[in-house]
Design a protein around this nucleic acid. Structure first.
Lengths: 281, 281
DNA sequence: CGGGTGGTTGATACTTATCAATGGCTGTGG
DNA sequence: CCACAGCCATTGATAAGTATCAACCACCCG
């Protein structure tokens, strides 16, 4: 039974199951720095919604084709998002904090997870730029899930009420909503299948392929190489394995020249074989 | 790596991954007997929607309080459901067959699952009377999931188009829809957590408690006893374990006087302890 | 530097799967 | 009515897969 971050919890007093095991106990929350909206857009190369990588329900693609993207962007601004810069390993959203606000990742990677009281943790999804945590969170407050930054993340938090109203004014968005919902559902089903019925090798290979596919959709793959900021700890928590075991499996994969991971960069060396290992499609 | 029903598949020619491992190869589909609508309601004690056990999104509870239940029932009839009687272990809905029609369980237990080509199978949910397979299936055609009867099942298949229109005419139903969606999502999250991070004992205990809770909502628990038609094979496929191991764990539970299962009846003998084992709440 | 974080590796333990044999039960066809 | 075929559950012996523990090294950043 693998427990994440228990050592840290033991060291720092009472077991607080809801506190992210990643959050550094020496740095009190809230530590995210709010930025003025316009400043943020130019400050550090963050591109705002203008080139927000399109995902199926990205708000940025919600603009009717006839609308200029600028107008849409302005539109989004109206929604009183507060833009935040969140450093790696900090919690973006606490399990209880899902009341009025929903975060959208603009830049960087995040992980959405549930944690048990004793520290066991399951990552349900990695969030890439443009991702909503879950389409449900649009309509109803969600709870129990922690969202935390894998890399430094810039994200916007929208008021749910506003966003909901916004979406409901645009019928074509609603349609996308239900498609995204379907997609989400089948992702969840696949996750259960993976965790319940697949071997460690398969799970890890599938995780990699899954991420690659999503990165490709966003144009973030150069040749066969791409940024891969996940720690083995993340891979472990996403696949229901132990970091040690993940290390061994990834080691095998590298020795077999399926992939290469170094300096936070992933290169796919033998995709067909990797797919075979993953039992993909 | 546990594989469901592989022997059967080997025996009967080509591996057909989409064919339910439970379906008996000697009985060709479609084997469900369609019944005339009115006949069905009286025939074998099936109660139609009149006493369809209420679940959060049961169509029967969708009737406005002012409406008499009879009116509602009539309403439902309009929807051109075809009522079917499906014997235990037969497939209700095939992975590909999710085009226009969606099944609702009226009586009996069913299981919704995904199956891999090599026969490994993960049950995603057990369906009790009043259950929809998934709220998404209302809006978009779903695929990849198999629904099969655990006990003899009576179910209705509705046309999605009709049902969708029906729901959209009733705003209060829409509201329930989004709540049910949230619920479904969190069920899926819990499933992933269970499969990824919990021990066999915990998973099985939780499955039992989960089922008990749902049965209780439907008034199907008498004292501490209730019908429990699941085979150990079902429990195994729902928990990502092996039937053999399930047998051993259930054996322990019984020897520890936590539960008793005999003649398809489950009795909870020591609920507090069972909850403790399940790490419940 | 020095501390925290991450990754690797080997030895070992534990959980769960696999295999195999047995017996009970149920429905079916002669 | 019996015999038989399938299914189901149980049990024990053994194997495989993964976790746990511990030590070590390699970073990176302050």
């Amino acid at each position: 039974m693998h427990v994440t971050g228990l050592a840290v919890q033991k060291l720092f007093g009472k077991q607080n199951g809801n506190e992210s095991a990643f959050a550094r106990p020496d740095l009190a929350e809230p530590a995210a720095k709010p930025l003025p909206n316009d400043a943020a857009d130019k400050a550090d190369g963050m591109m705002s919604c203008l080139i927000c990588p399109a995902n199926d329900l990205t708000l940025c693609t919600g603009a009717k084709p006839s609308e200029s993207r600028i107008d849409w962007a302005a539109d989004t601004m109206e929604l009183a998002s507060s833009t935040q810069l969140i450093p790696a390993r900090r919690t973006i959203c606490h399990p209880k904090e899902w009341s009025d606000t929903i975060p959208v990742i603009c830049q960087g990677w995040a992980a959405s997870s549930i944690t048990l009281l004793d520290g066991r943790r399951q990552i349900l999804a990695f969030l890439l730029p443009g991702d909503l945590v879950s389409t449900v969170s649009l309509l109803e407050p969600m709870s129990g899930r922690t969202v935390e930054a894998v890399t430094d993340v810039t994200c916007r938090k929208f008021s749910r009420a506003d966003l909901k109203a916004f979406v409901f004014q645009r019928p074509n968005l609603l349609d996308k909503l239900s498609k995204t919902w379907l997609d989400e559902r089948s992702q969840a089903d696949q996750l259960a299948l993976d965790l319940g019925r697949r071997t460690a090798d398969e799970r890890i290979a599938r995780l990699i392929l899954n991420v690659v596919e999503r990165l490709a959709k966003r144009g973030l793959v150069k040749g066969a190489a791409m940024e891969f900021p996940l720690r083995q700890r993340h891979v472990a928590d996403a696949t229901g394995l132990t970091p040690v075991h993940v290390s061994k499996v990834l080691g095998e994969f590298q020795r077999a020249d399926l992939i290469d991971i170094s300096r936070r960069t992933l290169t796919i060396l033998n995709e067909p074989e990797l797919r075979r290992v993953a039992d993909w499609r």
